[in-house]
Design a protein around this nucleic acid. Structure first.
Ligand code: MN
Ligand code: MN
Ligand code: ZN
Ligand code: ZN
Lengths: 137, 137
DNA sequence: ACTTAATTTGCAATACGATTGCATCTGCTT
DNA sequence: AAGCAGATGCAATCGTATTGCAAATTAAGT
């Protein structure tokens, strides 16, 4: 458990009971989770507390928000180099239209985009829809 | 006005008064519009009717849905080759974080994405956030 | 033009995720 | 132990999306 506490402290988040539980839960997941997911899958749950916990996590660079186009916002743990100053682990997200799971694919590089003159690029968001490994077999 | 009627008929949509008004409105816009946008900017408006009008338009390949990550779904007119059988005008969408407008950039090609083995790609969705032409000057 | 059937429209009501207000609780400092 | 700041839990609200149903409109047949 000390492990989890250290992880929170490293991102300047006070390690409360609730936060440890949510972090522990998130670390077990292979897919991104919505607030409702977390609420339903965890034992002790209050939607609002989870909401605020996740918001704190996001603000401090511990989780990132994923809008996969399904209309429901999901969250996943960040890479180590994100912090309160900003998120740096921009990567591709894969949405499986079969099982509705969303996966981070941090190893797949996001290709460069050339915009028409006049448009200034700040951030590229790439969502790929398809069928995931598990659903293909 | 015959012009608008023809456009609807071409997509197998019955040209009613409301539909002509919405289509006319959409043709004037340079940015994608949310249901609320349409509701507020048009005169005669009922949110539900607009909702269903847009849904019909979408089903028949006259408009496409854009999820720009702002949390609000927006819509824009399709290219000519979309129809009830499907949408074929997949392209990049640009979201300006300054004016919150979302623009279709159909001329900017979406680069190929190489996924890890096991993931089967169906559709690539590319959203670029930044500052638009108008907001830069 | 008149009647009738099918589709569309408008209003009320609901669903549901996100967010806020506020009182209470918890953990740390003095 | 008392005090304080932040965290938590519950109720309430907000905003958008969606459905149900009755009235209005359109299309079709005579
Ligand atoms: Mn991710
Ligand atoms: Mn578009
Ligand atoms: Zn899947
Ligand atoms: Zn702009």
């Amino acid at each position: 458990m000390k492990d989890l506490e250290q992880q929170l402290i490293a991102k300047q988040i006070k390690p409360t009971a609730m936060r440890l539980l949510v972090l522990d839960f998130l670390k077990e997941q292979s897919a991104a989770q919505s607030l409702t997911d977390i609420e339903l899958k965890m034992e002790r749950t209050d939607r609002v507390t989870i909401y605020r916990t996740i918001r704190t996590f996001e603000e401090n660079g511990l989780v990132h928000r994923i809008d996969d186009g399904s209309g429901i916002t999901k969250f996943a743990l960040c890479a180590a180099d994100c912090n309160v100053a900003g998120h740096h682990d921009l990567h591709l997200h894969f949405y499986c239209s079969e099982c509705k799971e969303t996966h981070c694919l941090p190893k797949t590089t996001i290709p460069e985009v050339k915009l028409p003159t006049g448009y200034q690029l700040v951030e590229t968001q790439l969502i790929v829809k398809g069928i995931c490994q598990a659903c293909l077999t």
